[in-house]
C-alpha cells in the first residue's frame, strides 16, 4: 500500500473498527493464556479463539447425530424465527399504538405510564409470567420478543410525529388537507427515521430476549442448547459457538434494519448529486 491509500484508510472510520477488533482479540487471547495456566479445564472459563474456531470445523458428534456446529445452526433457526415473528408483530403493534397516541392525546395519557412500567420489568422476571399464561415456550418467545420491540418502536415513532415542524403542519392546514392526508403525506414519511431508530434498537433486543426465554424450558433454541452445554450435557464449545453466533446475529439484525432504512429513504442515501436523468421521472 502506498502512502495515499494509508491516508485514506485512516481518514475513514473503518480503522477504528479494525483497531477495536484487534484489541478485543488481543485481550481475549491474553485472558485465555492466563486461564490456561491456572485452571484444569480452561475451556469452561475462557478457551483460545483458535480452539473455538477449530470446534466449528470439527466433525466430532456432540450428541448422537449432530456435530456442534450443526446443533448450533439448527437451533439458531428456531430462535431466529420466533424472534423474527415477535419482532414483526411488536413493530406493527408499536407503530399502530404510536398512531393512536398521536391521534388521541387521551390515549397517550392513559397508556404511556403503563408502557413505561412494562418496560421496567426485567425480561427474566417477565418471561416466567408470560410462559405461565401462554403455556407454550414457542408462543412465549414470540410474545417476549414482541413486548421488547413494542416499546422502542412506539416511543420513537411517537416522538417522530411530534418532531414535525410547525410550519410543515401549517402548510397542510392551509391547504385544507384531511387528517388522513396529513398522516399519509407528512407525519408518517417524516417520522420514518425515528421509526427506524426504534427498529434498530429493538432488533438485537428481540433476539437476546428470545435466547433468554429459551433457557427456561427445553424444546430447542439457542438458549436451551446454551444451558445444556453449560451443564455438560454436550461439549462446552456449543456454548462458545453460540456466544459468537448471537453476537453476529445481533449485529446483522441491526445492519438489516439500517439497510431497510436506506432502501425506503433514498433521499438520505448520499450527500452528492444524483445523475441528471430528470426528464423521465415517472411520478411528478
Amino acid at each position: 500500500m502506498n502512502a495515499i491509500r494509508w491516508k485514506k484508510f485512516f481518514a475513514s472510520p473503518k480503522w477504528v473498527t479494525v483497531v477495536w477488533v484487534l484489541g478485543l482479540i488481543l485481550v481475549w487471547e491474553i485472558g485465555a493464556t492466563v486461564v490456561a495456566g491456572v485452571k484444569r479445564t480452561p475451556e469452561n472459563v475462557l478457551p483460545h479463539l483458535y480452539q473455538i474456531i477449530g470446534s466449528v470445523f470439527s466433525s466430532q458428534k456432540a450428541n448422537s447425530t449432530q456435530t456442534a456446529i450443526q446443533i448450533v445452526l439448527s437451533n439458531a433457526w428456531i430462535t431466529l424465527m420466533r424472534a423474527g415473528i415477535g419482532f414483526a408483530l411488536g413493530a406493527m403493534a408499536g407503530f399502530m399504538l404510536a398512531l393512536l397516541m398521536s391521534l388521541f392525546s387521551a390515549v397517550e395519557k392513559m397508556i404511556f405510564p403503563y408502557l413505561m412500567m412494562i418496560q421496567m420489568i426485567p425480561i427474566l422476571g417477565m418471561a416466567p409470567i408470560v410462559l405461565a399464561i401462554t403455556r407454550d415456550i414457542d408462543k412465549s418467545r414470540i410474545v417476549i420478543a414482541a413486548i421488547l420491540t413494542f416499546y422502542p418502536v412506539a416511543t420513537n415513532t411517537l416522538s417522530g410525529f411530534k418532531a414535525v415542524e410547525r410550519e410543515k403542519r401549517e402548510l397542510m392546514f392551509s391547504l385544507a388537507a384531511s387528517r388522513y392526508d396529513v398522516y399519509r403525506k407528512l407525519l408518517i414519511p417524516s417520522s420514518l427515521p425515528y421509526l427506524f431508530t426504534g427498529l434498530k434498537i429493538a432488533a438485537p433486543m428481540a433476539i437476546t430476549a428470545s435466547i433468554l426465554v429459551d433457557t427456561l424450558q427445553g424444546g430447542g433454541g439457542l438458549g436451551c442448547m446454551m444451558s445444556q452445554s453449560l451443564k455438560h450435557a454436550m461439549t462446552i464449545y456449543v456454548f462458545w459457538q453460540i456466544v459468537f453466533l448471537s453476537a453476529i446475529i445481533g449485529i446483522l439484525s441491526y445492519q438489516l434494519m439500517a439497510w431497510l432504512e436506506k432502501l425506503v429513504s433514498p433521499y438520505r442515501r448520499s450527500g452528492g448529486d444524483f445523475p441528471a436523468t430528470d426528464a423521465k421521472e415517472p411520478t411528478p
Binding site: M172, L175, K185, L186, P284
Partner: peptide, 17 residues
C-alpha cells in the same frame, strides 16, 4: 419535504386536491 424531489414537492398540493 426532504423525502420528495423538487417536482414532487411542487406536486404535493395538487395531490391533496
Amino acid at each position: 419535504y426532504d423525502w420528495r424531489t423538487a417536482r414532487r414537492n411542487v406536486c404535493m398540493p395538487m395531490e391533496l386536491m
